[in-house]
Design a protein around this nucleic acid. Structure first.
Length: 659
RNA sequence: GCCUGGGUAGCUCAGUCGGUAGAGCAACGCAUUCGUAAUGCGUAGGUCAGGAGUUCGAAUCUCCUCCCAGGCUCCA
């Protein structure tokens, strides 16, 4: 009998009998690996354990607690979901069911146009667990296109996929199911066969740490013109512990939900009388917002920006000139027809800033001209897309437009990036990544030369700054390349916040010019830059990042003073006045409730410092300091010492030390 | 816009078979005077999202509209 040699990931080789499979390799390495093995990676390609190995193959065994292993588990769980649904709804058509981040989904068309409801999840779950208990093997077979069409003749979505791939389509969705002219299927029982490229776990008993999470409608092929299918989402993991950890993480995220916190902390609300996506800011939210705006304004003054103000309404001609009306009419509030023309609520500030640039002749000596506005805009976001402060219909952008020469472009972008990052850091973010979106070769304005030059400028700025970034080829808007900055929050989620965009379209459409040193007219380059993006959205992200425990400088009430008995109330007020003198926001709650109840209330309001004052404090001009996050109050702190500490913390954008 | 699930007091929620509205917290009043996460008693608070219909009778059943949540699509 002949033998083959295969190479393991650590570089060692192993000799196996000819005809050995990946499963045999796992067994040869060790009993533990044989037990854990789910699939294999052979020469970089994921495959089933039943794959026969050849001499010289480089083989890694895929185990559950790896990214590849979890993907296999999730994909196999999706198949079990499809099998369960076809058992419960005979005649159901199934479309696609991939692994996704943290889980999987599968799309179905139920007979008679039925829909899933939340109650169906429990039934489907029970059926899936029955299938898992049956320990059905996943059996791979390969067929010709014609055989594939025959097997799936009653599954129109599968037929469409097979045809599309046979005709040469190669998008990711199709490739997940079929590869080239080989139609592979996985049967896990005589009655359930699914089109699939694989790989899969050896048998259903390897699955089970999953939870179905929700049902939803989803368009076939992601196209809203095509039929809407019924999607079931689930999460699946390699162990009960990992599943539980994920569910805990979801609950943690829920506790931080900015909509919940905004209500609990009395920051803002969305009165239904206003209509969807429109918020009113309450006094406490107003303080946080004002602090954010004041800080932003101060930084923009330092950064050499000039402040401008533009109206909320405009004649439609403006957006005809800018070209936005054709593209974005559906996203704008409907027009107001007046005697002297048609008016719109403004959905963006850029064209108005261009009018300011154009209001008189401009010299190269004025450039770079940096205009800044906290500009409130209104966009008619589709009803189903609204999401608290993160997707809202009326919001304020911290919007800058910078007009510069080609020669200034590099320097301007570099300093912009630094400016943006410094401000984000001041708000407590310190983990950033960026995306660089480059030209869509099919749709763009401006010369190739200027695209290359500005893309290079963006790239150089990113590299000079040492920012990790991904290049998204073809992802730029038609008018210019851009950098988007993502921040990672306290529980690891990423949010896209700031953006720096080049714009070759507005200067053209508004015929912007400056007179150069050569006494010739030149077209400036325009840069768009939003730092918060929208104040509302940034505020929502901040709330979630801090779980409502805003740093002291942003807290609506920074200190609350409580007297132990009501004969301490006068001293409590005295302490409050001393702290208010340097501008600290201090509240006093009089002693007509037990101290414990008042401390509790202040803690629930997430106030950074609760000061308790009693007989000792009145005698010694001291306070008892109970910091947020602490269970251990500090007694007998001198009032002025506390005040100095607090003033410094506010200036440093710090927060109470938790212990 | 589409799919699914919702909307009951300021907040969180209960409300059975269709029989006419309930709790806790918050608010207000009185008492309590207390050293660090819930003092007691009392009072008030509702167009059951809005409208139409079915019914002797609707929070409850039907339809329409608005709003919210989770997805899909979209996001200048």
């Amino acid at each position: 009998m002949s033998e083959i040699d295969v190479q393991l990931p650590d570089g060692s080789t192993r000799t196996l009998p000819d005809g050995a499979t990946a499963r045999d390799l796992a067994a040869a390495v060790g009993a533990r690996l044989a037990k854990d093995a789910l699939a294999a990676e052979v020469n970089g390609e994921l495959t089933d354990l039943s794959r026969t190995l050849r001499h010289g193959d480089v083989v890694a065994i895929v185990t559950p607690s790896s990214d590849a292993g979890r993907d296999v588990l999730r994909h196999s769980t999706a198949h079990v979901l499809a099998q369960a649904v076809t058992r419960l709804w005979p005649g159901a058509h199934f479309a696609i069911g991939p692994a996704i981040e943290n889980g999987f989904y599968y799309d179905f068309e139920l007979p008679g146009g039925q829909h899933f409801t939340d109650d169906d999840l429990a039934r489907i779950d029970a059926e899936m667990r029955a299938i898992i208990a049956e320990d059905q093997p996943f059996t791979r077979s390969e067929h010709s296109v014609d055989e594939g069409l025959e097997i799936f003749q009653n599954q129109p979505f599968k037929v469409e996929i097979i045809r599309a791939v046979a005709e040469g389509a190669n998008d990711d969705v199709d490739l997940g199911e079929v590869s080239g002219s080989v139609v592979s299927t996985y049967a896990n029982s005589a009655s359930f066969v699914d089109l699939c490229r694989g790989p899969h776990v050896p048998a259903t008993s390897r699955l089970g740490h999953f939870k179905l999470t929700r049902v939803a409608g989803a368009y076939w092929r992601g196209d809203e013109k095509r039929p809407q299918l019924q999607r079931v989402y689930g999460t699946a993991w390699e162990s009960a512990t990992a599943l539980e950890a994920h569910l805990t993480q979801l609950r943690e995220a829920e506790k931080r939900d900015h909509r919940k916190l905004a209500t609990e902390l009395d920051l803002l609300s969305f009165p239904s009388e206003l209509g969807g996506g429109l918020a009113v800011w309450h006094p406490r939210g107003g303080i946080v917002r004002k602090e954010m705006e004041d800080f932003s304004r101060a930084r923009h003054v330092e950064g050499g920006y000039q402040f401008v103000v533009t109206p909320h309404l405009t004649n439609a001609r403006l957006y005809e000139t800018s070209g936005h009306l054709d593209f974005y009419r559906d996203g704008m509030y409907p027009p107001m027809e007046l005697d002297n023309g048609t008016y719109y609520m403004k959905p963006m500030n850029c064209p108005m800033h261009c009018l300011i640039f154009r209001s008189r002749s401009r010299s190269y000596r004025e450039l770079p001209l940096r205009l800044f506005e906290l500009g409130t805009v209104y966009r008619y976001e589709r009803a189903g897309t609204l999401h608290g402060l993160l997707r809202i219909r009326g919001f304020t952008q911290d919007d800058s437009h910078i007009y510069c020469t080609e020669e200034q472009l590099q320097e301007e972008i570099a300093s912009l990036l630094e400016f943006v990052m410094n401000v984000l850091r001041a708000f407590g973010f310190n983990d950033f990544t960026a995306n660089l979106s480059t030209k869509d070769p099919k749709k763009y304005v401006g010369s190739d030369e200027i695209w290359e030059k500005s893309t290079a400028a963006l790239r150089l700025a990113l590299e000079r700054f040492g920012l990790r970034y991904q290049e998204k080829k073809g992802d730029a808007a038609f008018y210019g390349p851009k950098i988007d900055i993502d921040v990672r929050d306290a529980i690891g989620r990423t949010w896209q916040l700031s953006t720096i965009q080049c714009d070759f379209n507005h200067p053209e459409r508004f015929d912007l010019e400056y007179v150069g040193a050569d006494n010739q007219r030149h077209r400036p380059i325009m840069l768009h830059r939003a730092l918060f993006g929208s104040i509302e959205r940034f505020f929502g992200v901040l709330l979630e990042h801090y779980a409502g425990n805003l740093p002291t400088w942003l807290s609506p009430e920074q200190v609350r003073v409580l007297g132990v008995r009501d004969d301490h109330d006068a001293y409590a007020e005295h302490v409050a006045q001393l702290l208010r003198a340097p501008g600290v926001r201090v509240g006093v709650e009089l002693a007509n409730e037990p101290l414990g109840a008042r401390v509790r209330r202040a803690k629930l309001e997430k106030i950074p410092y609760v000061l308790v004052v009693g007989d000792d404090d009145v005698a010694n001009e001291t306070v008892g300091v109970n910091a947020r996050g602490s269970n251990d109050p500090e007694r007998g702190v001198g009032v002025s010492a506390f005040r100095d500490r607090l003033v410094k913390e506010i200036a440093d954008h710090g927060a109470p030390e938790a212990n």
